[in-house]
């Protein structure tokens, strides 16, 4: 008596009926999806190109040495962008200098040193939430803490207080980016380091961090790019619109590019709108220089890894 599975035949039969390779259909779907993703990519590029061309056509003729080296003025022809430009560069320096070490440090601690306990879990949730808090809230926080409480250190409504506030604003983003970059480093590296007797810090310093550094830099640059476009927290901190001198670190008023651009856009005279377009170009150039620096640094680090 042979033992036969009574279901074997019918299952096989069913499978034959059900399995329809439909290769043509699958390839069609494949193509449709490819075209859809291509359109999505191009749509972004077209919008960017449109914006760029629009701004360049309006602003490029206005962009000259006089524009870069003059202080604000009631006449659009004499007005320049020196004070806000210096203000923005100041802000970038202070923000990067404060946010980078603290953010990367916190990321390393959370990813490499801390154990999974209630405290770190609460910390993680809060950092995630902080990354989504509207920037004006950071402005109010900065006003209360850096402008009012620490007035002796920051000098009040100064570029220093504003830089600290922006640093706070991008700290969660840097922490999250650092953690993601560290997480992408294969665990085998850590295990190998420790197996050879290296301490945790030695492993992190010599092997994990260099691997993760390009990713950390990219995240930091994205965060800084967000910071230099911010207007709301700066207005709360007390950025001025008319600053006829080079702002200093922790003394006197300051201005920043987005504030000046916003003011020019709102003026009735068309010549000021041209100035705003030129200001936007300057802001973009600052951004591009920043990104280029980051890419250069990243490539250096990647090359050094070999």
């Amino acid at each position: 008596m042979t033992v036969t599975d009574p279901n074997a035949f019918s299952q096989d039969d069913l499978a034959k009926q059900r399995f329809n390779p439909n290769l043509a259909g699958r390839y069609r779907l494949d193509n449709i999806f490819r075209i859809a993703s291509w359109v999505a990519t191009i749509a972004g590029l077209v919008v960017l190109a449109f914006l760029l061309i629009d701004v360049l056509v309006d602003g490029l003729p206005r962009l000259n040495w006089q524009f870069l080296t003059s202080f604000p003025s009631r006449s659009a022809e004499r007005a320049g962008i020196l004070a806000p430009l210096v203000g923005t560069v100041w802000l970038l320096f202070i923000t990067a200098l404060v946010a980078f070490p603290i953010g990367v440090g916190a990321g390393i601690f959370l990813e490499e040193f801390s154990t999974d306990n209630l405290f770190t879990r609460i910390l993680e949730i809060n950092i995630g939430n902080l990354a989504a808090v509207p920037s004006i809230i950071y402005g109010l926080l900065g006003l209360a803490v850096f402008v009012r409480v620490f007035v002796d250190i920051t000098g009040g409504r100064t570029v220093f207080a504003a830089g600290l506030t922006l640093a706070l604003l991008i700290l969660p983003v840097i922490i999250v980016a650092t953690r993601e970059a560290l997480r992408a480093v294969p665990d085998s590296l850590r295990l190998a380091g420790m197996a050879l007797g290296a301490t945790r810090w030695q492993t992190v310093r010599e092997h994990v961090l260099p691997q993760a550094f390009p990713g950390i830099l990219t995240g930091t640059i994205l965060a800084l790019s967000r910071a230099i476009g911010e207007t709301a927290p700066l207005i709360v901190i007390g950025a001025q619109t008319f600053v006829p001198y080079i702002p200093s670190f922790r003394e006197g008023g300051f201005s920043a590019l987005p504030i000046q651009i916003f003011n020019w856009v709102g003026r009735p005279q068309a010549e000021f709108h041209t100035n705003a377009a030129a200001g936007i170009i300057v802001l973009m150039i600052v951004l591009l220089i920043m990104n280029a620096t980051a890419i250069y640094l990243r490539n250096r680090f990647q090359a050094g890894k070999v």
Binding site: S73, R74, A239, T241, F242, V243, P244, N263
Partner: peptide
Amino acid sequence: FPISEAMAEEFMAANNGVQVTVG
């Protein structure tokens, strides 16, 4: 703002030692 800006600009042109900021 534009009025104060204009006044500040001209006043400072005549008085170099004075710094006016307008927000």
